Amino acid sequence: MDQLLHHLRHLGFTEMESKIMVELARQGSASGYEVAKRLGVSRSNVYATLQRLEQRGFLRCSPGEPAKYSMLKPEEMTRMISDQMHTSLAYVERSMPQSEPEKPVFYNVEGDKNVFENLSRELAAAQHEIVVDVWREEAELLREDLQRAESRGVRLLWSCEGGEGMLDQPLPLPRLPISGAGTGRKFSLVVDRRWCMLGMRGESCPTQAVVTEHPVMTGLLLSHFAQELVLYELEQDMGRELESRYGGRYADIAARYWSSFSSENEQ
């Protein structure tokens, strides 16, 4: 009895409704007076509950004086409840307001395994474009993932420092020194102009990277990459003239800014 009442309450019936339904199911049919007497509760509460259950379709009321109430068959009642529940659940699923789950703006990834698993997953999901700025060692590790993406029709833009020939037509572009940045090799990738990773890897430093979909960071990396391509094109067209005027790899220009920046950091 207690278990049955417990489950009826879980289906949304009040304690009084549950007791009346069980009592009517046991007796077959009864008047409001008879139900109230059997349960030992006030007739006004019983009559109000009987009317409510009848309006909801769970009870039948026979004409006459006094009116007699009876329960639906158990299978009819449960089918009715099931239909109502499915209707309500479907409506809630369709109509409940939805918001995009918040993603961390930036998160850190540490260790070779975690970094390259993150990279492989994103490269495999790339649909339009991959921009890669890496050293020779990292280019070799990413070779198969990049080739698979390119074979799917994904546009591949990349530069490689430390040696030509690791991939087709590498762009060995100038790298400016960054004071206090350690001895690791810096790398960055941007996938579909949406997701990016910026990190460092080397024999003397742990592999670490920052991952984000923040548009400011992806924009900065794309802008930096575009500037490197422009400088590379200028070197190809005006290499000797640029070198004679500004020094190899623009060393004279870089010295103006990076030397003062370095000395400020050291103070």
Rank of each mutant, 00 (worst) to 15 (best):
K19A: 09
A126K: 10
L242K: 03
D192L: 12
H128P: 00
E15Q: 10
R60F: 09
S179K: 13
G40R: 02
G12R: 05
H86D: 10
E243Q: 06
D133N: 14
N265I: 15
H224E: 14
V92T: 04
L146C: 05
V109T: 08
A124W: 02
E65R: 15
Q267N: 07
I81T: 05
S263V: 08
F58K: 00
G111H: 03
L72V: 07
K73Y: 00
E241A: 14
G111F: 04
L146A: 02
T212F: 04
G153V: 08
G28P: 04
R155V: 09
M21W: 05
E102T: 01
K186A: 11
H128G: 06
I253A: 04
R43D: 10
L231C: 13
F187C: 09
R43L: 14
R143T: 08
V216I: 12
L59M: 02
W158M: 11
F13C: 01
V92D: 00
Y107R: 15
G57D: 04
E54P: 01
A126C: 13
S188C: 13
M217S: 11
K73T: 00
L5N: 02
T14D: 08
E75V: 11
E102P: 00
R194D: 15
L221P: 02
M217I: 15
R143M: 11
K19S: 07
V46T: 15
L234C: 06
L171P: 00
E23W: 07
M1S: 11
Y250W: 15
V41C: 07
R201I: 09
E164C: 11
S188Y: 06
R256V: 05
Q127S: 09
A124I: 01
E100L: 01
E161Y: 12
E110G: 06
M71F: 03
E203T: 13
R43Q: 14
I253S: 01
K73W: 00
R43K: 13
M200T: 14
T212P: 02
C61M: 15
S244M: 12
Y257M: 05
E122W: 15
Y47M: 09
M16A: 06
H214V: 05
A226D: 14
R175P: 00
R121L: 15
E235D: 15
K37W: 10
V190T: 13
R136N: 07
G28L: 06
H224G: 14
Q267W: 02
